[in-house]
């Protein structure tokens, strides 16, 4: 049985569970807002309302999409911390362990690691704080951490003030590529969009299967191994016959991309990885 962890507001989890239902894959969904309330766990079992207890030993894999700390009392906090312990140390098969997702807490830290691979380049990236600058070539500005920022403005000639640390990165026009890598399975899509940040396009994006060069695929798998990630969503840009690496998302919102494809390749890969024992 696959354990699915997340919150009801997360549509990615919905798409994954829908896939499981369609293909008769056993799963149990832990709504983290209910942990310590209607859902509970102890050293041996999970307890769901109206269900027989589910033994930890019956769980073949855990799909972890811990979104945010729910409001909690002390007991619920204890349960959450206990869950983190299971995810980081006790379950054998977790996509992804919380401790491995933390590289995304710092984009430059991750970029430094990605710069060790040669099939892509890293866009010129500056970290700036407490400084007023005048921009002279096209740049985009984004959050330095994993906190979401909308990157829809290209700065060309403006003055800009930086207070908290943020990234000023060379604007690379070109084709956005999202690569989902789950263990050894790679699914790449191209995204043709009118917006700089395709997530916030006012119009529908065109999404199509993209064939990556073999070396880029190898490097993505090697990067995942370096970061400890078994599933990631890597953002690349293809421009002037070169690939540029932007970031590797450790909990990618893959469902949007998959909904445009002919097959649920990524859900299939996730189910395959989470259904097998990895002893």
């Amino acid at each position: 049985m696959i354990l699915v962890l997340g919150q009801c507001s997360d549509q990615v989890i919905g798409a994954f569970m829908h896939h499981c239902v369609k293909h008769s894959v056993d799963f149990a969904f832990v709504d983290l807002n209910q942990l310590g309330k209607s859902i509970d766990m102890d050293e041996l079992y999970w307890f769901f309302p109206g269900q027989s207890p589910v033994s930890h030993s019956d769980i073949t894999g855990v799909y972890n999409r811990f979104l945010d700390w729910p409001k909690q009392n002390k007991y619920q906090m204890d349960r959450l911390l206990s869950l983190f312990d299971w995810l980081d140390h006790r379950y054998e098969n977790v996509i992804n362990r919380p401790k491995d997702t933390m590289s995304n807490l710092s984009k430059p830290y991750q970029l430094d690691i990605a710069s060790q691979f040669f099939s892509w380049s890293i866009p010129k990236t500056n970290i700036i704080m407490n400084t007023q600058i005048k921009i002279k070539s096209p740049f985009i500005c984004k959050s330095i951490s994993s906190e979401r920022s909308i990157v829809n403005q290209v700065y060309r000639q403006e003055e800009k003030a930086f207070y908290e640390p943020a990234l000023l990165q060379a604007y690379i026009p070109g084709l956005n590529i999202r690569v989902h890598a789950c263990d050894d399975v790679i699914v790449a899509v191209g995204i043709q969009s009118d917006a700089v940040d395709y997530r916030y396009s006012r119009f529908e994006n065109d999404i199509f299967m993209y064939h990556l060069p073999g070396q880029v695929e190898k490097d993505i798998l090697a990067l995942n191994r370096t970061l400890g990630l078994r599933f990631s969503g890597v953002d690349l840009i293809y421009h002037n016959k070169k690939y540029y690496f932007l970031e590797a998302n450790p909990s990618p919102g893959y469902a949007y991309f998959e909904s445009q494809l002919s097959r649920p390749y990524i859900s299939e890969a996730l189910v395959s990885s989470l259904s097998r024992s990895i002893h």
Partner: peptide, 14 residues
């Protein structure tokens, strides 16, 4: 709205 289209990458919470 954020989170409604399944394209939201989650940020890990430190």
């Amino acid at each position: 709205k954020d989170g409604k289209e399944g394209k939201d990458d989650i940020c890990p919470v430190a």
